[in-house]
Computed example of a mutant assay.
Amino acid sequence: MTSLTDVQNTAFLAIGPSRIAALSLLALAQVPEGADGASAEEVLALSVQRLTSAHDMLGSRLDAMLAECSYALPAELEAKRQSCLELLSPLHHAVTAADGAVLAHARAVPDLAALCLYRLEPAVSEFLEDMVETLREAQQQREEERDAQMRATIATAEGVGKNIKFISFNASIEAARIGEMGKGFAVIATEIRELSGRTQNLLEEMSGYLKH
Rank of each mutant, 00 (worst) to 15 (best):
Q140F: 06
R151A: 07
M150F: 12
T134H: 04
R146K: 13
E144W: 06
L135F: 01
A155T: 15
T156H: 13
R151I: 10
M150G: 02
E133M: 07
Q141R: 11
V160K: 09
Q149P: 01
A148I: 07
V160L: 14
T156S: 13
M131I: 05
A152Y: 11
Q141V: 08
V132F: 03
R136P: 00
R136C: 00
Q141I: 04
T134V: 10
A157Y: 04
R136Q: 10
A157N: 09
I154Y: 15
L135D: 01
E145F: 02
I154V: 14
I154F: 15
E158S: 11
M131A: 06
L135K: 03
E143H: 05
I154Q: 11
R146Q: 14
G159S: 08
E137Q: 11
E137K: 07
E158I: 15
M131G: 02
T153G: 07
R146E: 14
M150D: 15
V160M: 12
M150S: 12
Q139Y: 05
M150Q: 15
E137F: 00
D147T: 13
R136G: 05
Q139A: 10
Q139L: 06
Q141N: 06
A157R: 12
A157H: 04
Q149T: 11
E158T: 12
Q139P: 00
D147H: 10
R142I: 01
E143Y: 07
T156K: 12
Q140G: 03
R146V: 05
V132G: 04
R136A: 07
V160H: 13
T153S: 14
Q149H: 12
A148Y: 11
E143T: 08
E144S: 09
E137Y: 01
Q149M: 12
M150T: 13
E145D: 05
G159T: 08
A152T: 03
E137I: 00
T156F: 11
I154N: 12
A148K: 14
A155E: 15
A152H: 14
T134M: 03
I154R: 10
Q139K: 02
Q140T: 10
M150P: 01
R151N: 01
A155Q: 14
R151Q: 15
E143N: 11
M150R: 15
Q141D: 10
Q140M: 07
R151E: 00
Q140P: 00
R136W: 05
E133W: 04
M150A: 14
Q149F: 09
D147C: 10
T134D: 01
A155G: 03
R142E: 02
A138P: 01
Q140D: 09
V132L: 06
G159F: 03
A155V: 10
M131E: 08
R142D: 01
A148G: 03
Q149W: 09
E143I: 09
A138E: 00
A148C: 08
V132W: 06
R151Y: 07
R151M: 15
